[in-house]
């Protein structure tokens, strides 16, 4: 992991006068909004992937077969990410154990 990542991610707040005294209501608002923005970015990503896989010729409505495909696409994409994260963790643990 890039050691500067978290530093860079918060860099935009560095210009505020005093981090410790940032209004707590504003701080929690910003945190909520960045979380929402992250979720929306994920929806953009998934819509891209599932559109490519499920929609052939755009018709006058999404038919039920396409809807099922999109819905399965989202679910299986998340399953895939979770499976990969779990397996990756095991690989890391295995590597750490053999050192």
């Amino acid at each position: 992991m890039d050691p500067n990542f978290s530093k860079r991610a918060t860099m935009s707040f560095d210009s505020l006068p005093n981090k410790d005294e940032v209004d707590p209501e504003v701080a929690s608002f910003i945190q909520m909004e960045s979380q929402k923005a992250e979720l929306q970015a994920q929806v953009h990503k998934l819509a891209d992937v599932c559109w490519e896989q499920c929609v052939d010729r755009p018709r006058d409505k999404l038919d039920s077969r396409t809807e099922t495909c999109v819905s399965n696409c989202v679910e299986r994409f998340i399953d895939t990410s979770l499976t990969i994260a779990t397996r990756f963790q095991k690989i890391l643990q295995g590597a750490a154990g053999s050192m």
Binding site: H44, R59, L62, E67, V70
Partner: peptide
């Protein structure tokens, strides 16, 4: 026009399922 409408449908469906 059709493609735009369907892309927005897809976006909304993805958002709901997600």
């Amino acid at each position: 026009a059709m493609c735009m409408d369907r892309y927005m449908d897809t976006w909304n469906l993805v958002s709901r399922v997600y």
